[in-house]
Design a protein around this nucleic acid. Structure first.
Length: 494
RNA sequence: GGGUCGUUAACUCAGCCGGUAGAGUAUCUGCCUUUUAAGCAGAGAGUCGCGCGUUCGAAUCGCGCACGACCCA
């Protein structure tokens, strides 16, 4: 028998006492007639000082969040999914037996009440209870009412408690769900079709990242949790679906930070016969619309910084951004030796085999990225860092690609898709060669993907948007863990 | 992987130049039928994250470990 502390013993004892009185501790037959939020508008129509017992009766259920007990009466705060309301319960109204049951209830218990609405002396809408029904006994005490639960470790490990006691946390996750729903609406309205592609891949492709590995017993084969859905969505373009999207988890076996969780949610969408310019337009429209729906404005504040999401957004090539924002002379950027020298001076360690484009990209990440607060599309990414993107017709050293940055963070990545199977195969092989010594990245050529391209993939543009980061922006959340219900943590002791 | 900070009652936190562990909330008891961080009076509640060391004596000092946060890679 485990040793229980005093508080836990007391709760168990009260539960036993209630049970002994014939009260069902975990009742399953209670039906509220109303949600709490449905009662709140009545405040406007009930005259102050009106008869407590007059008016229609309502039945509600929820968790008791606070109790202010007097000898033979008490006020409670009851919380359900929709809101909170005060309950007034007095012995004379419910009878001595029920009042005895009530005295055995604790903060945290779930209970149902039937009663009439009235306004208290202090002007608060309240339910005068005539019926009380204990529904679920809580054996663990909730955190303190005033400070709530602030210990982040407990908040993440026991998100259910966090959600009970911290209303703003619940709001953030409601917004997350709403954002995803708005994305679906937006894309569905434009004729995109939502699809589901495999989460377990025989080859981890579509991005460069370390995958999680698993094993399929019946087929006796290794499988990888997907690092990106890209190659499957493109197969669907080959198959004739011209506008597809998928919103789901990607898994990357890499470090954790305020911006990285090993599983994260990605929107990817592909549109045949479109170009990345059209996707920039679409992205501006979608994100600014969602911001308006969620926050009421296209001007949002993120961690004290003002961000203007109103279109049109700034569009710069990577080289332009290095000149304008990074302060690097164009002449330097066009010369491989000078660029490498500058990179070295800035403390960037570059392999001798890499090209000018890689060096530019590193300089961009170091000098420009975190200065892009208002939304900015960076275009013309070097080909050598864009293995799946189509080369630019006029300058084959860069691709028809953009990344979108807001508050210094990468939010989206998009490009005209490479649909030349010969070029694609060569570039994949080159990638494999370059990362060949990193054993955890599993360099395997996806021959079936090449075969699909050989059948002919229509010209298309595709984009990925990191949903977690978008939600962070629109909910002013400093850490990705604040927008993921159950973020990854090491296991608890014991 | 490196650095900094943190871990004390169920929760929020004090205590830390070493000397038998404290507050508020919550809980329990008594009083209280319009309170809203209700009030008044009283009480109980702790492996001070874990381990080793220094010391007559460690929540406090040192080392190691665990978990977490932030920053860096």
């Amino acid at each position: 028998m485990e040793e229980l502390n005093q508080l836990l013993k007391q709760r168990r004892q009260k539960a036993q006492e209630l049970s002994d009185m014939g009260v069902e501790l975990y009742a399953n037959d209670f039906k509220p007639t109303h949600s709490i939020s449905e009662l709140l508008p009545h405040k406007e129509t009930i005259p102050e000082g009106a008869d407590h017992t007059a008016g229609p009766r309502f039945t509600i259920a929820g968790r008791i969040m606070a109790m202010r007990k007097f000898g033979k009466a008490a006020f409670l705060q009851l919380q359900d999914a929709s809101g909170k309301i005060q309950i007034y319960i007095k012995r004379d109204a419910v009878g001595p037996d029920v009042y005895t049951h009530f005295k055995k209830l604790d903060i945290g218990d779930i209970a149902g009440f039937t009663g009439t609405l009235f306004i208290t002396k202090t002007g608060e809408l309240s339910l005068m209870a005539s019926v009380l029904k204990p529904i679920t006994k809580s054996l663990l005490p909730l955190p303190e009412k005033f400070h709530g639960l602030t210990d982040v470790e407990t908040r993440y490990r026991q998100r259910y408690v966090d959600l009970i006691v911290n209303p703003e946390v619940k709001e953030t996750f409601k917004k997350r769900i709403e954002i995803i729903s708005l994305i679906r609406d937006f894309l569905n309205n434009r004729g995109f079709m939502e699809v589901e592609t495999p989460m377990m891949h025989p080859i981890a492709g579509g991005a460069t990242a370390k995958p999680f590995q698993t094993h399929h017993n019946a087929l006796d084969m290794e499988l990888y949790l997907r690092i990106a859905p890209e190659l499957y969505l493109k197969r669907l373009l080959v198959g004739g679906f011209e506008k597809v999207f998928e919103i789901n988890r990607n898994f990357r076996n890499e470090g954790l930070s305020t911006r990285h969780n090993p599983e994260f949610t990605m929107l990817e969408f592909y549109q045949a016969y479109a170009t990345y310019h059209e996707l920039m337009d679409l992205t501006e429209e979608m994100v600014s619309w969602i911001a308006t729906e969620i926050t009421g404005s296209m001007q949002v504040t993120y961690q004290g910084e003002n961000v203007d999401l109103a279109p049109p957004w700034k569009r710069l090539t990577m080289v332009e951004s290095l000149v304008q924002i990074g302060g690097i002379p164009l002449e330097t950027l066009q010369d491989k030796e000078k660029t490498f020298a500058l990179a070295k001076e800035k403390g960037i360690d570059l392999d001798e085999n890499v090209g000018l484009g890689k060096a530019q990209t590193e300089l961009f990440e170091l000098l420009v990225e975190d200065k892009l607060i208002d939304p900015t599309f960076i275009t013309a990414y070097p080909t050598e860092v864009s293995p799946l993107a189509r080369r630019n017709n006029d300058d084959p050293t860069v691709t028809d690609r953009f990344e979108l940055f807001i508050t210094g963070r990468e939010i989206a990545n998009a490009f005209n898709e490479l649909n030349d199977p010969i070029d694609q195969k060569q570039r994949m092989e080159q990638q494999i060669e370059e990362r060949g010594d990193d054993e955890e990245i599993f360099p395997i050529l996806d021959k079936d993907f090449i075969r699909a391209l050989e059948y002919g993939m229509p010209p298309a543009a595709g984009e990925g948007i990191g949903i977690d980061r978008l939600v962070m922006l629109l909910t002013d959340s400093p850490s990705i863990r604040d927008v993921i219900l159950f973020p990854h943590l090491r296991p608890e002791k014991n």
